[in-house]
Design a binder for these strands. Sequence first.
DNA 1: ATGGTGGCGCGGCCA
Length: 256
Amino acid sequence: MKVATWNVNSLRVRLDQVCAWLEEAAPDILAMQETKIPDEEFPHQAFAALGYRSVCNGQRAYNGVAVASRQAPEAIVIDIDGFGDPQRRVLGATIGPLRLYDLYVPNGQNVESEKYLYKLNWLEALREHLAGEAARHERLLILGDFNIAPEDRDVHDPAAWEGKVHCTPAERAALARIVDLGFDDAFRLFDQPERTFSWWDYRGGAFRRNLGLRIDLILCSKALRSRCRACDIDPGPRRLERPSDHAPVVAEFDLN
DNA sequence: ATGGTGGCGCGGCCA
């Protein structure tokens, strides 16, 4: 079973690229972020034409998550328990043998911003929510745009990014508390080339110069860890004309 | 160079 995550930065703009990538990469599940499209305008037909079911939790202009999957999504959740949030950032679903959460973690803007506090509060509320899910589901996958680079090796220039949003000790600790519920970063289960990233700024030729961050993650529960066969980032879509600023991340699981 | 690029939507916000 092939599971992918991709921040598409507007599904309206990127729909043709997403469909082409689905046909080429053929994942069983694709979790998308920053769809920026209200649910009533979501292009379900485009996914259906490729043999995918789709479920969305969107809003106009900002945020928005969606999942396309071969098998029908069930037991859908669109909010963090006890955390009233008008921003559409969460989509939980049971798909075949997996319980899955597609996340668009708040960016945080900068450490002086109210948005940074919102990010940390959001992550703590998410941790509590996921603790409940982890108690109920052995095969649990948490994936999406975390807007946190877990370690310095996930950052093109750690000195330049030290103390900056995406890399602060508080953000990394918040992520670690979630991982400590019993997850592994699937990407790090395997040998990986140095300087492998999932996001590159649109500005300054950052992609061409490989000045990126690895902030798009697939976290798998212990029951999935032993069944994870690969995890890779596909830079192909980032090379296209008018690309998303993120590349897809793909993990493969042997679930019999 | 306090910029740069891109999406949304038409001025300014967000990333």
